[in-house]
C-alpha cells in the first residue's frame, strides 16, 4: 500500500516536472554558461578575446564601480526616466485601455492605432522625432514661433536642460502601446457579472472602478510596472540613435556605459561587473514589487 502510494506520488511529481522540462532545457543550454562566464569575467581584467591574457583582479572592478561617478549618475538618470514612465506612461496607457474596454466608438481602430509606435521601426521613429526636436528647422520650434513663444526655441536634444526630457518623452510615446495592450487584456479578463451585479446595486463608475477593477488588476499592474522598469532602465537604442549620451554625459544611461566599457575601452571585466551590479539593482526592485503585491493579495 505504502509503496503504491509512493509510486503514484513519484509519478505525480514527474508529471509536474514534465511541464517545465522544455523551458528548463533551453534555459540550461543558453543561460547557465553565459551567466557563469559573466560572473567569472567580472573578477578579471580581460579584453574579451580568447587566447589573450586574463588576469584575476579580485574585487577591483567592483570597487572601481563604486567610485565611478559617471556610472552612478547614469543609473540615477535611468531611474528618473523610469519614474516618469511608471507614472505618466502607464497612466495614459491605463486611461486609454479603460476607454477602449468600455466600448467607445471606433474601439477597434483605436486598438490598432495605439499599438503603432511599438510596431514601427526605430529608424523611422528616430528620424521623425529628430525632425520634430531639431534646433535648426525643427517642427516644435516652428510651432512655438507660430504662437510667438520664440524664447522657448532651442535644440531640444542638445540642450542639457531638455535633452533627457526629450528622450524620456520619445521613449514613453513609443512604450505606452505595450502597457495599453496588457492592461486591455487584463480588463477584458474581468468577469462582467461583477459589474452587472454592481449595476443592480446602482453603483456609479467610480466605486466600480475602485472596488472591482482596481483590486482585480493588481497583478496586471505589477506585470506592467515590472515590464516598464525593465524596458526603461535598460533603455539604450533610442539614445544611441539620437544623442549618443551627449551633450557631455547628460543622457548617458547604464547600458550605454556598459557598451562603452566593452567596445570603447575594451574592458570586458569591468563591463561584466557593471552588468552584474545593474542586474542586482533591477532584481531587488522587481522582487520588492512582487513581494509587496503578494502581501496585498493575502491581505484581501
Amino acid at each position: 500500500m505504502n509503496r503504491h502510494m509512493n509510486k503514484t506520488k513519484i509519478y505525480s511529481l514527474l508529471t509536474s516536472y514534465s511541464f517545465i522540462v522544455p523551458a528548463l532545457i533551453l534555459f540550461a543550454i543558453f543561460n547557465i554558461y553565459t551567466f557563469f562566464d559573466l560572473f567569472r569575467l567580472s573578477f578579471m581584467k580581460s579584453n574579451g578575446l580568447a587566447g589573450s591574457i586574463e588576469t584575476f583582479v579580485g574585487l577591483q572592478n567592483y570597487i572601481e564601480i563604486f567610485k565611478d561617478k559617471v556610472w552612478w549618475e547614469s543609473v540615477g538618470r535611468a531611474a528618473y526616466i523610469t519614474f516618469l514612465a511608471l507614472t505618466l506612461q502607464n497612466f495614459v496607457a491605463l486611461i486609454l485601455a479603460l476607454f477602449v474596454d468600455r466600448g467607445i466608438r471606433g474601439e477597434t481602430i483605436y486598438k490598432v492605432i495605439f499599438f503603432l509606435p511599438p510596431v514601427l521601426s526605430g529608424i523611422v521613429i528616430g528620424l521623425i522625432w529628430e525632425w520634430i526636436f531639431d534646433g535648426n528647422y525643427g517642427l516644435l520650434n516652428h510651432w512655438l514661433t507660430l504662437f510667438h513663444m520664440e524664447k522657448f526655441c532651442r535644440a531640444w536634444l542638445a540642450d542639457p536642460k531638455t535633452a533627457l526630457y526629450a528622450i524620456a518623452f520619445i521613449h514613453m510615446w513609443r512604450g505606452f502601446g505595450w502597457g495599453f495592450v496588457i492592461f486591455l487584456a487584463g480588463l477584458q479578463n474581468i468577469d462582467r457579472e461583477l459589474y452587472e451585479a454592481a449595476d443592480v446595486d446602482g453603483a456609479t463608475w467610480w466605486p466600480k472602478f475602485v472596488h472591482i477593477t482596481l483590486p482585480l488588476m493588481v497583478p496586471v499592474f505589477v506585470i506592467v510596472s515590472i515590464l516598464t522598469i525593465l524596458g526603461t532602465m535598460q533603455i539604450y537604442d533610442l539614445i544611441v540613435s539620437t544623442t549618443k549620451g551627449g551633450p557631455g554625459y547628460h543622457t548617458e544611461v547604464p547600458i550605454t556605459r556598459i557598451i562603452y566599457s566593452m567596445t570603447g575601452s575594451l574592458n570586458f571585466g569591468y563591463a561584466s561587473s557593471q552588468a552584474i551590479v545593474f542586474g542586482v539593482i533591477l532584481l531587488i526592485v522587481s522582487m520588492t514589487q512582487i513581494f509587496v503585491s503578494n502581501r496585498l493579495k493575502k491581505n484581501d
Partner: peptide, 18 residues
C-alpha cells in the same frame, strides 16, 4: 524572472560559442 533583469554584455559572443 532573474534572467530578464541582467543585461549581458557580449551576449552574442556567448551564444555563438554555445
Amino acid at each position: 524572472i532573474g534572467v530578464m533583469m541582467i543585461p549581458i554584455p557580449g551576449v552574442f559572443v556567448a551564444i555563438f560559442v554555445i
